[in-house]
């Protein structure tokens, strides 16, 4: 009971802090904090989505950035066509670009989910280190695909002229955009929270712990895992759509394998197999980068060993530390 009280306290304090962050940043005269916080929220969505397959499903993917980047490119490409006034596809049914978030964000989610379905369908036929490597291979394919896609900037990437239009909201305003990111994260976490505790979530956790028994019980495990992989891809696509808006720029760098590595780091650092963990991990990593960068441009010199230390000493991450001893972090 003490543990759950502590958990609840974390939720309340965290929630209140996040909700009040823009006015607090205004008071502290640090408006750039809002934009950093938006970035953290966006990466948190991507990290939570990765944790669905990694922490709950025990599928170690080193290619999650592919779905993140794909979502960003969907938004970027649609905005590019809307600005240039060039139809995306001609022919019997011309498709034009759009700057409307209500169109391009769901499309980003759908495209990423479909991509994850295809990649997952092939990758899930392998396991262990081969799964790690094949997801990496597919992500690299997509990286090079966008890297050589000259129509959309190739390796230079693609700049957006403005953020998307979202039902009359001014996303160009950092505070408004922040609340949109916060809302997106809250919605996604609610969905995940229901998901992992549902029958489907139990099946996924069962597959992670003992897939052989799951099959013997009569579960077609491949299909359940694939659906989980697709849902995770969809989440990363949403994060991608948001990051494209935040930076008003998309580039192949979003899909690079080191980005996938960073997402893994966030999940582990924060505490995998939990939903808050990845959010904390994103915050710690991005804040840490930012803080270390104030003192030294070589912040990676400290981050690297820190990461090794975390791996060697604890598997419960920051969230586990906050909750204290005597629990499994769940």
């Amino acid at each position: 009971m003490k543990l759950s009280a502590r958990k609840r306290l974390l939720w309340y304090v965290g929630g209140a802090l996040l909700a009040l962050l823009p006015p607090l940043a205004g008071l502290a005269d640090e408006p750039f904090m809002v934009s950093l916080a938006s970035r953290i929220l966006i990466y948190a969505i991507a990290a939570v989505s990765l944790d669905l397959i990694l922490g709950f499903g025990a599928m170690v993917s080193l290619g999650h950035a592919a779905f993140f980047g794909a979502g960003a490119y969907v938004v970027g490409i649609l905005a590019f066509h809307a600005f240039e006034g060039v139809p995306l596809a001609s022919g019997p049914i011309p498709v034009s670009g759009t700057n409307n978030a209500l169109v391009s964000w769901p499309l980003a989610v759908i495209v990423s989910a479909l991509l994850a379905t295809v990649i997952g369908a092939l990758s899930l036929r392998t396991s262990g280190i081969h799964f790690i490597m094949i997801t990496l291979a597919f992500a690299q394919m997509l990286f090079y695909f966008f890297d050589s896609l000259e129509a959309y900037g190739g390796d230079d990437g693609l700049s957006l002229w403005s953020r998307n239009d979202l039902a009359g909201l001014d996303l160009g305003d950092d505070t408004t955009f922040y609340y949109v990111c916060l809302g997106s994260l809250a919605m996604f976490m609610l969905i995940c929270q229901r998901l992992v505790n549902s029958r489907f979530g139990m099946v996924i956790r069962g597959c992670a712990q003992n897939e052989r028994r799951m099959r013997a019980l009569g579960f077609p495990t491949y299909r359940y895992k694939l659906l989980c992989f697709a849902i995770a891809g969809a989440g990363a696509g949403l994060a991608g759509a948001l990051i494209a808006n935040q930076t008003e720029y998309v580039s192949p760098g979003l899909l690079h394998w080191t980005r996938s590595g960073e997402l893994l780091v966030m999940v582990i650092l924060g505490g995998m197999g939990t939903l808050i963990g990845p959010v904390l991990g994103a915050a710690v990593l991005l804040l840490g980068e930012d803080l270390l960068a104030i003192f030294t441009e070589h912040w990676q010199l400290y981050l690297g060993p820190l990461l090794i230390l975390v791996v060697l000493t604890t598997r419960r991450g920051v969230y586990g530390l906050l909750l204290g001893r005597g629990n499994d972090g769940g």
Binding site: L54, V60, L62, G128, I129, I132, G261, L264, V265, I268, H298, W299, Q300, L301, L303, G304, P305, L306, L307, I308, V311, L312, R315
Partner: peptide
């Protein structure tokens, strides 16, 4: 470092050696 990672699972190995990459890149700079 690595000697401690032999008994660990692949995920730990990926992360810790990813940390080494960050370290060496910064060191070289």
């Amino acid at each position: 470092v690595l000697r401690r990672l032999y008994p660990r699972d692949h995920l730990d190995q990926v992360l810790a050696t990813f940390g080494l990459i960050l370290f060496f890149n910064a060191l070289v700079q």
